[in-house]
Amino acid sequence: MSYSVTLTGPGPWGFRLQGGKDFNMPLTISRITPGSKAAQSQLSQGDLVVAIDGVNTDTMTHLEAQNKIKSASYNLSLTLQKS
């Protein structure tokens, strides 16, 4: 079951990613910084990142996902799936 979260910026957003197409692993939330915008939302460590700002992550490399997140200036919309 997927869910959506919109973090209001600017960054830093307070989470780290792992995985990506180049690692043959789905993009997942690997760490959440305590007290951060991510920590105050529904994000959980281990959640799968399905889309970033409406763009499906199935074919994204780790770097492409990082760049997509960094390019979000004020709002960052994520679609996630609980692990």
Rank of each mutant, 00 (worst) to 15 (best):
Met1Thr: 10
Ser2His: 14
Tyr3Lys: 04
Ser4Tyr: 07
Val5Trp: 02
Thr6Cys: 13
Thr6Ala: 07
Leu7Val: 03
Leu7Glu: 00
Thr8Met: 15
Gly9Ile: 03
Gly9Met: 04
Gly9Val: 05
Gly9Thr: 05
Pro10Ala: 11
Gly11Ile: 04
Pro12Leu: 04
Trp13Leu: 06
Trp13His: 10
Gly14Ser: 02
Phe15Tyr: 02
Phe15Asn: 01
Arg16Ala: 14
Gln18Glu: 14
Gln18Ser: 15
Gln18Trp: 06
Gly20His: 02
Gly20Pro: 01
Gly20Val: 01
Lys21Gln: 08
Lys21Gly: 05
Lys21Met: 12
Asp22Gln: 05
Met25Thr: 11
Met25Tyr: 07
Pro26Leu: 02
Leu27Phe: 10
Leu27Val: 11
Leu27Glu: 01
Thr28Phe: 07
Thr28Tyr: 12
Ile29Lys: 01
Arg31Phe: 13
Thr33Ile: 09
Thr33Met: 07
Thr33Phe: 09
Pro34Cys: 06
Pro34Phe: 08
Gly35Gln: 08
Ser36Gln: 04
Lys37Thr: 14
Gln40Ala: 12
Gln42Leu: 10
Gln42Lys: 13
Leu43Ala: 06
Leu43Thr: 02
Ser44Lys: 13
Ser44Gln: 10
Ser44Glu: 13
Ser44Trp: 05
Ser44Gly: 09
Gln45Trp: 06
Gly46Cys: 04
Asp47Tyr: 02
Leu48Asp: 05
Val49Gly: 00
Val49Ser: 00
Gly54Asn: 07
Gly54Tyr: 06
Gly54Pro: 01
Asn56Pro: 13
Thr59Leu: 09
Met60Phe: 10
Met60Trp: 06
Met60Cys: 05
Met60Leu: 10
Thr61Asn: 06
Leu63Asp: 12
Leu63Asn: 11
Leu63Arg: 14
Leu63Tyr: 12
Glu64Trp: 04
Glu64Arg: 04
Gln66Pro: 01
Gln66Ile: 14
Asn67His: 08
Lys68Gly: 04
Lys68Asn: 07
Lys68Arg: 15
Ile69Lys: 01
Lys70His: 08
Lys70Val: 11
Lys70Ile: 11
Lys70Asp: 12
Ser71Asp: 13
Ser73Thr: 14
Ser73Leu: 12
Tyr74Thr: 15
Asn75Asp: 15
Asn75Pro: 10
Asn75Cys: 10
Leu76Cys: 07
Leu76Ser: 03
Leu76Asp: 01
Ser77Trp: 07
Ser77Ala: 13
Leu80Met: 14
Leu80Pro: 00
Lys82Cys: 15
Ser83Arg: 09
Ser83Pro: 14
